[in-house]
Amino acid sequence: MATLAILIIGLISLANVLVRYITDASFAFTEEFSVFLLVVLTFAGASVALRRNGHIRIALLERALPGTARKVLILLQGGCGLVVLGLITWFGARMTWQEFQWGSLSPGLGLPQWWYLGWLPLLSALMLLRQLQQTRDRLRGRLEDES
């Protein structure tokens, strides 16, 4: 998903530059679609990094702690991630629902705004599932920490 998003961003940006260079006009949809695809790219990439235990964190304390204390720290880290992703999912869903109810349209193309916003709670909910998987696997010792 992330690869497809960045490919599409590159193609529409290139097309927009070429059209602007040749005709002195640009496509109206490129900014809206690029921002939308950047959100998709961010959440898809973050989800992959989360599943592979590749997010940036300071593991010095985690490696220094004995077994039980380390597991408590892993649970604390996982819980914090779940809270943040839960809040993004909840408020993203509320915002999407409000935009749907109000019938708001995007400024450039006049498309329903909720079409763009609906991906935020969906992708953050999927990332929340990845957070649960990662925390479970770290507690079971399946994901090694980076050295």
Rank of each mutant, 00 (worst) to 15 (best):
A59M: 06
F43W: 13
L41I: 00
G54Y: 04
R136V: 12
E146W: 12
Y21K: 13
L73D: 12
S124C: 04
L109E: 13
T89V: 10
L11V: 15
I22T: 14
W102E: 13
I6D: 06
A125N: 00
G141M: 05
A125H: 06
V72L: 15
G141D: 09
L75V: 11
I22H: 07
G108W: 07
W119N: 06
W97H: 13
Q113I: 09
E146K: 11
T30K: 08
V35I: 15
W102F: 05
T23E: 14
L82S: 10
L132G: 10
P66W: 04
G78H: 06
V48K: 12
Q133G: 04
E146L: 13
I12N: 04
G108P: 00
L129V: 09
W114I: 01
L4F: 15
A2T: 00
A5R: 11
L65F: 05
T135Q: 06
W90Q: 00
Q101S: 01
W97Y: 09
F100T: 02
G118H: 08
A2P: 01
L60P: 00
V48D: 11
G110Y: 10
L38R: 03
L65N: 10
L109F: 03
G110K: 07
Q131C: 09
L132T: 02
G141S: 09
F100P: 01
F29I: 03
G110H: 09
T42W: 08
L41Y: 07
D24R: 15
E31N: 09
A125W: 06
F33L: 15
L122H: 01
L41S: 09
G86A: 01
N16Q: 15
A64D: 06
D24G: 14
T96I: 05
G54A: 14
I9P: 04
A64E: 12
L143Y: 09
S26K: 08
R57N: 02
L85A: 09
L111H: 05
L50I: 01
Y21C: 04
G10H: 08
T96A: 09
R140W: 03
W114K: 05
I8G: 04
I12G: 01
A44T: 13
